[in-house]
């Protein structure tokens, strides 16, 4: 059987998941569609992460953002492929991710009209998304920075050993 380069690369991105009690090498997208076990993130945080990912990049949910992040939170930090490694964020990274997801959820309820987990599929057509993000779609950077800053005290309170920089 021959493969083209893109097919090879797609398989090269496979990670080890557990489906119905059996281990399998799957892409994050396959892991999602096959209902692979999640090891760190609970369903509420998965919904928040998928909604947030979908706002950033259409198709993030179907690509398996939650299963990718979850799988990398579950491994030894030295083997992790998360972008947190590029910053001065102290492992275990689950502290950071769950803290920020909780902060995003909390932030969305503080004077904002919608939870990120309940946002519609096309956020650019949605006024609520604009409000949730801050003062407009073009200022997402500021909104994300604000969310990150808002997350810090929550993360610190919840996980006192955590250090990170904005």
């Amino acid at each position: 059987m021959t493969q083209d380069r893109r097919q090879f690369l797609a398989r090269a991105g496979s990670l080890l998941y557990t489906v119905a009690g059996a281990s399998a090498w799957l892409t994050p997208a396959e892991a999602r569609t096959q209902g692979a076990d999640l090891r760190v993130l609970d369903p509420a945080r998965v919904r928040t992460l998928e909604a947030f990912g979908e706002i950033l990049v259409p198709g993030a949910t179907a690509a398996g953002i939650a299963h990718f992040v979850d799988s990398q939170l579950a491994v030894d930090p030295n083997d992790s492929l998360l972008v947190t490694r590029l910053f001065n964020i102290e492992p275990p990274y689950g502290r950071f991710y769950t803290g920020v997801l909780d902060a995003l959820e909390a932030l969305s309820r503080l004077g904002r009209p919608a939870s990120p987990a309940r946002l519609p599929r096309d956020p650019q057509r949605c006024r609520r998304c604009r409000l949730w993000h801050g003062r407009g779609l073009s200022q997402t950077r500021r909104a994300l920075h604000g969310a990150h800053r808002a997350a810090q005290p929550l993360v610190m309170r919840r996980w006192p050993g955590t250090t990170h920089r904005s």
């Binding site: 950033l56 259409p58 650019q124 779609l137 997402t140 950077r141």
Partner: peptide, 9 residues
């Protein structure tokens, strides 16, 4: 970094 969704695409 300020772009997202369809604008980013």
């Amino acid at each position: 970094a300020e772009l997202f969704h369809r604008d980013l695409e």
